[in-house]
């Protein structure tokens, strides 16, 4: 199945801004993070389709997964 991955902040360095990826059905958010070689403990926020999700969330076809390092401001 196909998912769209969006990366932000320093996760973009050496990787990409947005990319379509083919993954096996049943793939979880943390498995995608491992595939991207991002240390799990560096992920501050993950969202699927603009909603916060847990790292064990299982992705569905056409999901948009956004991954952010810990960020702040205001």
């Amino acid at each position: 199945m196909t998912v769209i991955i969006r990366l932000f902040g320093r996760f973009r360095l050496g990787r990409f801004k947005e990319k379509q990826m083919n993954v096996r059905p049943g793939t979880s958010v943390s498995q995608v993070i491992e595939l991207l070689e991002i240390p799990l403990d560096e992920v501050g926020v993950s969202m699927v389709n603009s909603r916060h999700c847990r790292l064990d969330h299982v992705l569905s076809d056409n999901d948009v997964l956004a991954l952010f390092p810990m960020v702040g401001g205001g």
Partner: peptide, 14 residues
């Protein structure tokens, strides 16, 4: 970790 991000990207990271 938020301190590092604020320095690198500013509050506009939001």
């Amino acid at each position: 970790p938020i301190t590092e991000g604020l320095g690198e990207y500013g509050t506009d990271i939001l």
